[in-house]
């Protein structure tokens, strides 16, 4: 592959993962919710859109017996909607839990969802890959397809960025921020904080679901192993390194993390440790995450003044 093709591929992955980070930033950065089920929302979006747009398998070895041929935009929309519904459903049971316990419950739900995807082959192809997922407008765009898809993803990222930033800066976002700071205060001022948390969860999950759909229609084939908890953790690292609470930070953080992960594609295979590079870069991400939390808790683009306000360093 030429370097230009690789660059487009990496940029598209950055775009899709940026959408995940935008959703997680609404959960964690704006509302203070520890959502560890993000990979599951991503998976729900991917599988929903894939199943709705890809006919069932045929032949003797057919595994998946369910499928349809709806237009891709229907699949994307349904994927985002179903991911949002799953997010709200999980949140209904759990958002009253204290932060770190919410993390464990959401992580468990995510694994449960992955277990279902893995085991229900008639619906999802199970452990094998769900193949032959159609690409939108393939063959009918006047520019290179990779470039077209990148521009499509870029457009969705830009739109989502503007939308979520607008939400965060609105009176709605103000209540979310108040929930993040101290939930009892908005409660005492007449805000139904549980309802606001559900909305936050649903919105962030919806964008993750949309990201899943865009992922599925880009990669042709999806497997349950694309949606491991380590993906959730990677997006967490991106949001924290970028600066929790900043949507631009979420995108920059993702570009940074994906960049570290994908840069090895450009490294020739005859350098020392080349075969270990995939793992070395994950070690680097882990070290970076810890270092940022220690030296720069507000991340690359977070609001230092806000983070320090009220803490020991910030008090005069």
């Amino acid at each position: 592959m030429a370097v230009g093709d690789l660059a487009l591929l990496v940029a598209t992955i950055m775009g899709v993962y940026s959408l995940l980070a935008i959703g997680l930033n609404m959960h964690w950065g704006d509302t203070g919710l520890l959502n560890f089920a993000h990979a599951a929302f991503f998976a729900i979006g991917a599988y929903t859109s894939a199943i709705l747009t890809t006919p069932p398998e045929t032949g003797l070895l057919a595994n998946r017996t369910v499928g349809a041929s709806y237009p891709i935009f229907v699949g994307l929309l349904a994927g985002a909607t179903l991911a949002a519904a799953a997010g709200v459903l999980i949140a209904v049971t759990s958002v009253r839990l204290e932060g770190d316990y919410l993390a464990m419950v959401t992580l468990s739900f995510a694994e449960l969802i992955r277990l279902v995807i893995h085991n229900e082959g008639w619906l999802t192809s199970g452990a094998q890959s769900l193949k032959g997922i159609e690409r939108p407008l393939e063959g009918s765009v006047p520019i290179r397809y990779d470039l077209f898809y990148f521009l499509l993803v870029l457009g969705v990222v830009a739109g989502s960025y503007l939308l979520f930033r607008r939400l965060a800066g609105s009176p709605f976002g103000r209540v979310l921020h108040a929930v993040r700071e101290d939930e009892e205060v908005p409660l005492a001022l007449g805000k139904d904080t549980t309802w606001f948390k559900l909305k936050s969860f649903g919105l962030g999950a919806a964008i993750a679901g949309l990201a899943g759909g865009l992922w599925a229609h880009y990669v042709y084939a999806i497997t349950p192993n694309m949606f491991l908890p380590s993906l959730t953790f990677t997006i967490w690292a991106a949001v924290i390194i970028g600066g929790a609470g900043s949507y631009l930070g979420a995108i920059v953080g993702t570009a940074f993390i994906v960049g570290i992960r994908q840069v090895t594609r450009f490294v020739p295979s005859d350098v020392p440790f080349a075969s270990d590079l995939p793992y070395i870069r994950l070690v680097v991400i882990g070290v970076l995450l810890i270092a940022v939390l220690y030296y720069r808790p507000y991340g690359l683009l977070g609001d230092e003044e806000r983070m320090l306000a009220g803490s020991e360093e910030g008090a005069d």
Partner: peptide, 13 residues
């Protein structure tokens, strides 16, 4: 919560 996220980093490493 910060310690939980830090432990994710340790786990990665």
């Amino acid at each position: 919560i910060v310690l939980l996220v830090v432990s994710i980093g340790v786990a990665f490493v």
